[in-house]
């Protein structure tokens, strides 16, 4: 029961979509679920978090002042300046089906305002709230974020490596002798894994009608 098929994955995805639609937390599908392995679940980080340190600088300064610009009102009395001390970080979460491991896989990426990406260490520091930080060995291993080319986008993303997911799901199932249906599997997995990287999963997902 540690693994699921693509069809079961799709059942899980559709459950998430249905719940998300009612509570408005932004999960949507990209690509096509009709095609085997052809689509995935995506969501933007709900709220940017303020963990971003300034992006890496090269020798030359990253900002260029244009004194030549003569706007009619250099100091526009009708606007206020945004709080520049606040450096938000934005992110996106994707749930893909891993054909090789037959489990769902969480991909994520986070970036600063200018589009520069956060490194793995910064991701952990910033996204995992202290109280959510896993302590057990198993969770510790689960934490390993690895860089991986996004199978659909071809860009470097981070993902939680799927090689231990099946074991983890077996453990979570524990004494649950009944075969867990696809929806429950999916939500169990998501609510275990996603909060580790700063993607909260609402309790609404746990109600299966």
């Amino acid at each position: 029961m540690g693994n699921i098929t693509w069809e079961e994955f799709v059942v899980g995805v559709r459950h998430v979509l249905a719940v998300s639609d009612s509570i408005g937390d932004g999960w949507h599908v990209r690509g096509s679920l009709e095609e085997h392995g052809g689509g995935y679940l995506a969501k933007r980080m709900d709220y940017p978090v303020a963990i971003g340190e300034p992006s890496e600088r090269t020798a030359e300064d990253a900002t260029i002042d244009h004194d030549s610009v003569t706007e009619p009102y250099e100091n526009d009395p009708c606007s206020i300046d945004p709080d520049s001390s606040f450096r938000p970080v934005y992110g996106e979460f994707h749930v893909l089906y891993s054909l090789a491991h037959a489990v769902p896989t969480l991909y994520l990426r986070a970036w600063r305002r200018d589009g520069s990406c956060l490194e793995a260490q910064e991701l952990w520091r910033g996204l995992t709230a202290a109280e959510r930080r896993p302590s057990s060995d198993e969770s510790e291993r689960l934490r390993s974020l690895t860089q991986q080319e996004h199978p659909f986008l071809g860009e470097p993303w981070y993902h939680l490596h799927p090689c231990r997911t099946a074991d983890l799901m077996d453990q979570i199932a524990g004494n649950d002798v009944d075969r867990v249906d696809a929806k429950r599997y999916f939500i169990r997995w998501m609510s275990t894994v996603a909060p580790l990287v700063g993607c909260p999963v609402s309790h609404h997902y746990a109600s299966f009608r």
Partner: peptide, 24 residues
Amino acid sequence: PKCLGWEKNERGKLGARMVNLSNS
């Protein structure tokens, strides 16, 4: 009417920004 709206850069001045993405 006059038009304005160029974004200020990180120094709070009217100016462009630069980002280095060699990392990714």
